[in-house]
Design a protein around this nucleic acid. Structure first.
Lengths: 132, 132
DNA sequence: GTCATCCTTGACGTGAACGTCAAGTATCGC
DNA sequence: GCGATACTTGACGTTCACGTCAAGGATGAC
């Protein structure tokens, strides 16, 4: 069973990005599709990487930051020191994600407070009108 | 007790942004400092808004999106329809934040999986060397 | 063969979010 | 009064993340 491959058109349709974006990510060394003649062929591994890239973007990371993070998911059975460094970088990234989640929870809680306030105001206005 | 005010220099120092950034946010109508002659004076309310702006940025929102969100925290005892609309927008935003948190949890979980993998590889290499 | 379709590599354009001068004003210490 | 410091308004420059042509190559349908 040989790995399926995808053209740039299929990829852009599947992930809702333009071909230009995919070429740009390759130029930025975030993706490394294989070549068949001139054409790019994207592998399942490419798709996984692209998923990570898009997720990173949704979290507000820059492409440069994402490029570094991608290495955390690409372990080429390297040296022990290599692996240890990867692990440490991963711990660091994990810390950032946890901090981001904490801040996100705070944001949600703040919003909830605000919504409660607005609801109270609406209630007040409602009873006010009902009393007329 | 009158409200304290802050110069643009104090603000930029406190929030670790440049004066240019604060002027830019005013130009974009994200901030409305009061004026004393030529000079801008930032109020505690401005500081609160700036906090929200910077938080929004960390979550990957654009300044335009943030501008809309700021209105959710600025209820000028408007009309009932106004308040109701605000509430609905807030619900929508809340949904987005919850989705973002879910994705963040997934990202953390994925990273944990990956770290476990790396640790296993390190263990394997360790016992391998120990057996020599 | 040729037409359509999809791909390719340049190369220049664009919007967002500021950075970076330049030139002038206001205030404070001395 | 005078220099230092902090502020002001332009106005042009920059970086990131692509968008948008232009010009051309490969492949399949007819």
């Amino acid at each position: 069973m040989t790995e399926p491959t995808y053209t740039i058109g299929e990829m852009s349709a599947d992930f809702d990005v333009t071909p230009r974006t995919l070429r740009f990510y390759e130029y930025k060394e975030l993706l490394r599709p294989i070549r068949e003649g001139q054409k790019r062929l994207f592998t399942p591994a490419c798709r996984a990487r692209l998923s990570l890239i898009l997720r990173g973007k949704r979290f507000g990371f820059s492409l440069d930051e994402i490029k570094d993070l991608l290495d955390l998911y690409e372990i080429g059975d390297g040296q022990v020191t290599q692996l240890a460094a990867t692990l440490q970088a991963a711990e660091h990234h994990r810390g950032e994600l946890l901090a981001q989640r904490a801040e996100l929870d705070q944001a949600i809680s703040d919003l909830d407070d605000q919504m409660r306030l607005v609801r109270d105001m609406l209630d007040a206005k409602g009873t006010q009108r009902a009393a007329e």
